[in-house]
Design a protein around this nucleic acid. Sequence first.
DNA 1: TGGTTAGATCGTAATAATACGATTTATCTG
DNA 2: CAGATAAATCGTATTATTACGATCTAACCA
Lengths: 119, 119
Amino acid sequence: MGASKIDGFTPAQLHLAEYAHALGHPARIAILQFLAQRRRCLCGDIVDGLPLSQATISQHLKALRQAGLIKGHNDGPSVHYSINEKIWNRARMALGNLFLHCTPSETQETSAVVMHSPN
Amino acid sequence: MGASKIDGFTPAQLHLAEYAHALGHPARIAILQFLAQRRRCLCGDIVDGLPLSQATISQHLKALRQAGLIKGHNDGPSVHYSINEKIWNRARMALGNLFLHCTPSETQETSAVVMHSPN
DNA sequence: TGGTTAGATCGTAATAATACGATTTATCTG
DNA sequence: CAGATAAATCGTATTATTACGATCTAACCA
């Protein structure tokens, strides 16, 4: 894409867009669901589980890592990936916030709950 | 980007990625927040409110419309835009679902609430 | 009808994203 | 050390995105 204009938007808007952007590809959704199922898994497990090459998976993992949503832990030649709960919760809250403030009608109370700090 | 591979992913994953992708730009976040504030507003209002050209705003509106998140209502020469609650709720649920199933620990009950059908 | 206004669309330049083969890097093992 | 394995990175072709000026379209008004 052309580079997005960044000035004129709030940090909150930029962060929210960054999180959503990281979620904006089916492979990255699948990777996150994969990580959630196994709680912690090798990069190779993901490669085996998805219809994409090792290089492409690695690229998507990098994108998720750069957004902060996942983290990797080196274990010999392999890497264990897992969801980064801290940033994950931030993303959850940011999106909950968006839906809270952008959803009209009585659904607001329902959405509101997602915003409460879980810890 | 290169065209994303689509086969091998579930419809749910594809929809989720589509919604997230639509939210993955600060201008589109700002537009949605703008629409939520005024509940219904002219395209020109958005153009005045954001640091982007009319052509660019129109392009972002098109992206949001194609994802189904907003709808436009013609009123003479102007167009009133508003959030499409039906699809908006679908997006909210889909994202709530993702966070529900991907978030470890005790935050699950909290996230779960967002999934309940509001109506 | 002629002019004005609101938005969409066109054309296009610049840049980012996607995908994958090939290669590199790093770690373990014999 | 030599070979094997895991994952990252490189190189690159293709396509999408972003942004904006310019133009087109449609609806309104005098």
